[in-house]
């Protein structure tokens, strides 16, 4: 491109009568949306991990099968947290009020008992992620055991 044309374009852009909007303001929901996208991304990566383990034939090894179960539990955990965050942070139809150290109240906008129950169980998300981590540890343990056996046989022990 010739320098004269470049200069003309630059002058045109400079001369436009619109305000500069390079830095935009973020509303209060931007954080939760980013967090939700993170959960979706995590979920998607776990699905991809499951398929990869399947496609690469790693499912024959117990360790990788356990890691696949880990991925499955994290998928459920992500779905759980997505739903929970949607209800309490995104649309804000439900919230928890701490009454005392041993008592909390699930308060819904519409006083829906069902929604409260659902949210109650959604809050127990550790029931997904802790088993997921347990399966991950078991899977790694199994892989470590296999690798040690392989190393020993390679060393002729």
């Amino acid at each position: 491109m010739k320098p004269a044309v470049c200069l003309l374009c630059l002058a045109g852009v400079w001369g436009l009568p619109a305000p500069a909007s390079a830095i935009q303001l973020h509303t209060g929901n931007a954080g939760i949306i980013a967090h939700q996208i993170g959960h979706l991304f995590f979920l998607f990566s776990m699905v991809a991990l499951m398929f990869t383990i399947n496609n690469q034939g790693l499912i024959r090894q117990k360790g990788w099968r356990l890691i696949q179960v880990t991925a499955l539990f994290f998928i459920f955990w992500n779905l759980d947290t997505l739903a929970a965050h949607f209800l309490d942070n995104q649309i804000e139809v439900v919230r928890i009020e701490t009454l005392s150290i041993t008592r909390m109240a699930v308060v819904t906008e519409s006083d829906s008992e069902l929604l409260a129950v659902i949210y109650y169980f959604l809050k127990l998300d550790h029931l997904w992620c802790v088993p997921a981590m347990i399966f991950l540890l078991m899977g790694l343990n199994s892989l470590l055991k296999d690798q040690r056996q392989r190393s020993d046989s390679a060393d002729g022990v």
């Binding site: 009454l99 150290i101 041993t102 008592r103 909390m104 699930v106 109650y120 127990l124 550790h126």
Partner: peptide
């Protein structure tokens, strides 16, 4: 709905 210890403990 009021919940108590389980959520806290599990958490």
């Amino acid at each position: 709905m009021t919940a108590n210890l389980p959520i806290l403990l599990v958490d």
